[in-house]
């Protein structure tokens, strides 16, 4: 699959997880593509952790407001009915369970729902920003990412990198399929028609439980 196809495949599938009226926080990168795939009758409120409820799209060139940026520091906007808040209120919304879903990428996740996305010791240490609070506080944590990192599995039996949080992931959506974290392990619920179950398992270190109701991912 072409990189762009991979990304839009994942984003389109993630969009189906969102319901009309949901409050959603999007991580940087791929997750920001998700709103483009929402059906017309599904309206979500985007929460941006730096202090916006009802965040809007990036303004057109020349329309930027010096005082309005997104969590990546890039020019942003506020939708009609949206509002600006301080960081404590922002994380009250996050930690207090007022965010219905957070969608973010990660370096590693595992069959227990553990996730790592903020540090590679000795190599890279960007910091956790708001990620630790988001994955602890959001009602649903959706990992949206490419299935492997240049061929090596990112979905492991047990994370090796320092964790962002323990047992926080609910759903993993990749270009290969949709996996749900359950008490028994990772259940493959949907598979992309371009792949076989064997191929998905081969690209996954964790042992997948194949749902008896396995559906095509679309």
């Amino acid at each position: 699959m072409d990189k762009n196809v991979i990304k839009s495949t994942i984003a389109a599938r993630v969009a189906k997880e969102l319901k009309d009226g949901d409050v959603v926080n999007l991580g940087i990168g791929l997750p920001t593509m998700v709103p483009n795939f929402l059906p017309q009758d599904v309206h979500v409120t985007l929460h941006a952790e730096l202090g916006c409820v009802g965040a809007g799209p990036r303004p057109a060139p020349g329309e930027e407001d010096y005082y309005v940026v997104d969590a990546g520091g890039q020019p942003s906007s506020c939708t009609l009915g949206g509002s600006f808040i301080d960081s404590a209120t922002s994380f009250c919304i996050i930690r207090g369970g007022h965010v219905d879903a957070t969608i973010l990428g990660c370096l590693e996740c595992d069959e227990e729902g553990n996730m790592a996305n903020w540090i590679i010791p000795g190599k890279k240490c960007p910091g956790m920003g708001g990620a630790m609070d988001l994955v602890v506080g959001a009602k649903k944590v959706i990992v949206a990412m490419e299935h492997t990192a240049k061929g090596s599995p990112k979905i492991l039996k047990k994370c090796r990198l320092p964790l962002t949080a323990i047992q926080c992931v609910n759903l993993i959506i990749t270009e290969m399929g949709v996996m749900e974290v359950t008490d028994k392990g990772l259940v493959l619920k949907e598979i992309h028609p371009e792949f076989t179950v064997e191929q998905v398992q081969e690209a996954t270190e964790a042992q997948l439980i194949i749902s008896p109701d396995l559906k095509p991912m679309c």
């Binding site: 952790e49 404590a88 994380f91 708001g130 630790m132």
Partner: peptide, 25 residues
Amino acid sequence: PQGSLAEMVRAGGGGLGGVITPTGL
């Protein structure tokens, strides 16, 4: 963690002895 830091500042400004949070466990 960003949310913890925000509350730690608030606690420092508001006379509280600390912040009790699940974040970072």
